[in-house]
Amino acid sequence: MTAPPSALILDFGGVLTTDFWACLRAFEQREGLAPGALVDLVTHDPAGHRLICDLERGAIGQAVFERRVGDRLGVDPAGLLARMAADLRPDKEMLDLAAELRAGGVRVAVLSNSWGSDYFDPYAPWQLDDLADVVVISDRVGLRKPDPQIFTLTVERLGVPAGACVFVDDIAAYLVPAAAFGMRVLHHTDTARTVPALRAAFNP
């Protein structure tokens, strides 16, 4: 019989928060952009995708990202990241489950691709250091998902084997290197499905 896992690694945006992509779509609507303008820029456009990757790795600062993306979208770059994240809200059920599992002895980590922290810190309202034993933010370590090294770093900081970890992310592509590293993985599409799946995993 396989032993239950002893550590939980959670993505931030879209897992501990409300839907990340819905947040970006709301920004597009507020700014008067065509539907998908921002999402397509950072996911499908090569130059735009490179900008978000550089921001997440800390290779460029927030002001540079905002200026270049603002130019591409034709919107005011001042405070752009804060406006992009304005509709993110805590997912209380996921946050409560993380706290409950941690209180029961499960090691908890937050592993997030970041939008930087020069002037705007999207993590501040969540007080992640109180929620988790380990917090790995991409721009602070110079690595981003899906780079396998960021999973290695997170497991090392947790102090448990990869096989003892469950990794939860709303982006399926990020689960692939985690699974290859030996982690159990869970694709988060809906809190109502994720919560019972995690309860079952940690309390078989």
Rank of each mutant, 00 (worst) to 15 (best):
H187E: 15
A63E: 14
T17V: 06
E56M: 08
V69K: 00
A99T: 11
A201V: 12
P177Y: 14
F167P: 00
F202W: 11
S6H: 14
Q62M: 14
D87A: 15
L73Y: 02
V134C: 02
T191C: 09
Y174Q: 14
P125N: 07
G182L: 01
D133Y: 06
R68N: 00
R140M: 06
L51F: 12
D169N: 14
D118H: 10
D45A: 11
S117P: 02
G36L: 08
D169K: 02
V106I: 10
P148R: 07
F202E: 03
Q127E: 15
M1I: 03
L101F: 04
L158K: 04
I60P: 07
D121A: 01
K145V: 04
L175T: 15
T152H: 12
H49S: 09
V136H: 01
W115A: 13
A192K: 12
Y174S: 01
V64D: 13
T152M: 02
P5R: 10
R184Y: 09
R72Y: 10
L131T: 03
V168P: 00
V141R: 03
H49I: 00
Y123T: 02
D87E: 15
R67Q: 13
D96E: 13
A78E: 06
Q29Y: 02
A22N: 08
A132I: 09
T152Y: 13
W115E: 00
I171G: 00
D19A: 02
M94C: 14
A201F: 14
D169G: 05
L73I: 04
D11N: 15
A197C: 07
L143W: 13
R199G: 01
F20V: 11
T2I: 09
D133G: 03
G104W: 08
D133L: 09
F20D: 00
P204C: 15
P46Q: 06
L101D: 07
Y123F: 15
M183W: 08
M183D: 03
F181R: 11
D169I: 08
F20T: 14
D87R: 02
E100P: 04
H188Q: 14
L10Q: 07
